[in-house]
Design a protein around this nucleic acid. Structure first.
Lengths: 118, 118
DNA sequence: GGAATGGTCAACCACTTGGTTGAGAAAACT
DNA sequence: AGTTTTCTCAACCAAGTGGTTGACCATTCC
């Protein structure tokens, strides 16, 4: 499947700085030094982070005079959401089946008890 | 915020083996060697992977005779989903506002377009 | 053309990661 | 008490990650 891509995306978002950059890019495109400003690291480090995000498909970069504005690509988020939702739902279904079983067990037990202490 | 936790969770899911284990655990709890079976790595390696998942809060382990069944904790998924949805939505809203602006620009331009030729 | 602005490339370094093997702990089964 | 089953801990290793500094490229401004 798109297993590699998914690995790259998760890995990219595992870093707090990269996650924060994504968060800020959700409000609009930004240049590299603009993005770098809040963090206490070199511009080169930020450039590397952006490369990681780009290779994961989370952002794209264009040229605009000397600047290289960074743009967030929201579609990749869907890949994650799909993966997550798939397994969350399965886990929850299972949980609810278990819940139902427990409830049935309780109901089966209730008659044998005189007074339920709830 | 729960920034560290989020970093751990994303990092945990950045590995294909760990992601596959989570996928399988969505269908029900499993022991370590049972989980290890499909992969071409040592049992110890799998044990390490499970430690990573556990520290990220994605799974819990209990004792059951010699076995240590692993259980998927679905709640942590919500943390990710929330983060993702937050920024995806913001990015999409922005996209739609931009779309609206472009449309307005086009409409504003149409009447003046009599002798354009520039 | 030369300087200023904005960013990347390359080499290096400390630390982490995912894997290995070997030893050993914990519970159940004779 | 000894063996088997199931799993973890410890030490080690190669490769990867996030950071640094220094050199350099591309574009605009004077």
């Amino acid at each position: 499947m798109d297993d590699d891509r998914l690995s790259e995306v998760f890995a990219a978002l595992a870093d707090p700085i990269r996650r924060d950059m994504v968060a800020r890019l959700a409000d609009g495109d930004a240049g590299v030094s603009e993005l770098a400003a809040p963090y206490d690291v070199s511009l080169q480090a930020v450039s590397k982070h952006l490369k990681v995000l780009e290779e994961a498909g989370l952002v794209t970069r264009r040229r605009e005079a000397q600047r290289r504005p960074v743009h967030l690509e929201a579609e990749v988020f869907d890949l994650m959401t799909k993966w997550i939702e798939r397994y969350r739902q399965r886990a929850e279904e299972r949980f609810q089946r278990l819940d139902a079983v427990l409830e049935r067990m309780q109901q089966a037990q209730r008659p044998t008890r005189k007074e339920d202490a709830s």
